[in-house]
Write a protein that binds this DNA or RNA. Structure first.
Ligand code: SF4
Ligand code: SF4
Lengths: 134, 134
DNA sequence: TTAATTAGAGACATCAAGAGTCTTTAATAT
DNA sequence: ATATTAAAGACTCTTGATGTCTCTAATTAA
């Protein structure tokens, strides 16, 4: 069990977009170069992020992507959910009622999620900029 | 990303073994019947658990498996590690130093792990017995 | 209006891991 | 000896991740 590479790419992309100045459009080519990825592959990931409402895309020449205006305070969890989906890590198909095992697993997963929810992209972006300046 | 079915089987098996009386050997056939699984497949899982030192096996007629004597207080995390391995959920191959993304992911994962570490099989087994009696 | 640029959709190929079966071997009890 | 049981390994099958390629649609710039 491991997070997919796509999630990694998505996180890098989102952090990068967050460091850009507001309303500036960044093309998939630049984003792909930054991560040494094929643009077409990254394009799929970006489409997922767009459909999740985390970024906005404008087609055509001089088009590209930017962080969503409406959706502020994007968390790590938001990005992960956009790529990995929202299904539970421990997904027993049977679902006996009052299952003790499932309870434990769900609770543990919630602990991870709440941490990922509390971590916002803007915070990381700020930290990254601080590090660069120093 | 999802926990494997094997982990689910392993957890059920371990809880079941924990409810058995000490030193009693349970064969793979019984364990497989309980979960409606093929014995040969479950056998592989049991071997992993044995290699991790969580259970002990005795071959031959009247043989079978039982919870390890030396290793008490087995946690959910122990079982999961035995099956899934101990690699990190977020495993970036590059490892830039002072990576902020990795930090967040690792910390979140630790939150989940610490919860899974604190949950012991014996506690769940006790609860399960209580439920049955009531 | 035309050409260049860019996102999006979808078919397709490839690969790795999970899930499970089958067979053979080794150890133990009766 | 024979039956029983765990262990090991080869093997198949399926699924999902990881990409690539191509075509379409929208937008800008000339
Ligand atoms: S006991 Fe819980 S985990 Fe086990 S089969 Fe029932 S619902 Fe699933
Ligand atoms: S910044 Fe962190 S997650 Fe990204 S490539 Fe570097 S080490 Fe990996």
């Amino acid at each position: 069990m491991k997070y997919s590479n796509a999630t990694n790419y998505a996180l890098h992309t989102m952090v990068y977009l967050t460091t850009q100045q507001r309303e500036k459009l960044v093309g998939v080519q630049e984003l792909a170069d930054m991560q040494r990825l094929s643009p077409t592959y990254l394009s799929k990931i970006l489409t997922k992020l767009a459909k999740a409402g985390l970024i906005e895309s404008t087609p055509g020449a001089k088009g590209g992507y930017k962080i969503s205006r409406t959706k502020q305070d994007i968390s790590f969890l938001d990005v992960i959910h956009a790529i990995e989906g929202e299904t539970s890590l421990f997904d027993c198909t049977i679902h006996h009622e009052g299952c003790l095992i499932e309870n434990v697993m769900r609770e543990a997963e919630e602990n991870m999620k709440s941490e990922l929810q509390s971590k916002l992209l803007v915070d990381i972006a700020k930290e990254a900029e601080m590090n660069q300046k120093s």
